[in-house]
Design a protein around this nucleic acid. Structure first.
Lengths: 204, 204
DNA sequence: GTCTATACGCGGATAGAC
DNA sequence: GTCTATCCGCGTATAGAC
């Protein structure tokens, strides 16, 4: 009843750290083995080559956010609540698993050239799911007729960059660093997202 | 009256391409020399080592967006107009100089570990400038009392990721790829940003 | 100013001992 | 299953010829 080889987790954790820090091309297999505390040959035997290491890290990371979104949807009644909860869940998971946003941003930066096919499939599913929520809100007359894709990228783009820069922002602008905790991040974004920047009456 | 050594531009263009594609650690100096069509020794003589190449690429790229924002501010009267114009300018420049968003996203992903000090200084100035615009709009009673940092990251996060994924989105979701041109990107974002997702009357 | 040639270490990956 | 030793190519960087 222990189907999970314990060292695989250690290896994948180490790989995630290295890939997040240096990107796929900058990452060193030697370094991953060192971080994991295993021999390089063992690493090859247990998981595989660099590409396979990366594939496993990406799929494991994607599952985290996929589950977070599923849970947010299940725990929500209205479309508005769903959006708010998705934001909260993503923000929470982003800071808890900060390596994953880093890897995702690098994939975006690199035109998804190192993203495994299964990762692309998961991305499509994720975008379809969240688009459906926006469409539903529009049809229910609760949401304005916004572009769902723009909304998706505003949410993920903002959460991931805010989460990744929290340390940096404290260093650069200690007296005014902006939102730091996942809660602060989720609240400040959903405020702007739901209500907009303009005061009521000034809308265009 | 020709103070600019022409080949330096060629070398920096090649370096930008390589750094954007592979990140600082993944980038290869040999590859940059090959792309630029110059000998590696020439490259070292003309610009410097890998670190200096990167520094020059980053500062040149930062100047592009800095100038774009300055211009947007100068061409605007109201705070609302300023925000809209900044969005337009950044979106235009992002797609025209697509390598720069890529490098910036990679810096965010890597905790700005390879970002030269001057780049950090420029970032702080950029954030102070744009924060002032938001604060002004709030004081004028036109904007709601939003978090300026969240707003900044929603704008840049969304524009950069939308610009970088435009090709990918067409491939993954050809029937519904979302905003593609800089104009589509700027309009869809500013619509959500200014007016919010919720219909008037549903605001929280 | 530019190129050829090369130093020297690190990269991914594996063979074969245990 | 795991480790040592090693292959071989590529990485940054420079010396020195032209």
């Amino acid at each position: 009843m222990s189907p999970v080889k314990i060292e695989e987790h250690v290896i994948l954790d180490a790989a995630a750290e290295e890939f997040a820090k240096l990107g796929y091309d900058g990452a060193r297999v030697d370094s991953i083995a060192r971080i994991a505390g295993v021999n390089k040959a063992t690493l090859y035997y247990r998981v595989g080559d660099k590409e396979e290491l990366y594939r496993r890290v990406v799929l494991r990371g994607q599952a985290v956010f996929h589950n977070a979104v599923i849970q947010a949807i299940e725990n929500s009644e209205t479309a508005t609540e769903t959006v708010t909860n998705i934001l909260k869940e993503i923000a929470n998971n982003a800071l808890e698993n900060i390596l994953i946003p880093s890897i995702i941003l690098r994939e975006i930066a690199g035109n998804a050239k190192t993203l495994p096919q299964e990762g692309l499939d998961g991305l499509k599913k994720f975008m379809d799911t969240t688009r459906a929520i926006v469409t539903m809100g529009i049809e229910d007359g609760v949401f304005r007729d916004v572009d769902p894709t723009a909304l998706q990228f505003m949410i993920t783009g903002a959460i991931f960059s805010l989460s990744l820069t929290s340390r940096m922002r404290v260093l650069v602008n200690s007296d005014n660093p902006g939102p730091i905790t996942p809660d602060q991040i989720a609240v400040s974004i959903s405020d702007i997202l739901l209500n907009g920047l303009l005061k009521e009456g000034n809308r265009q």
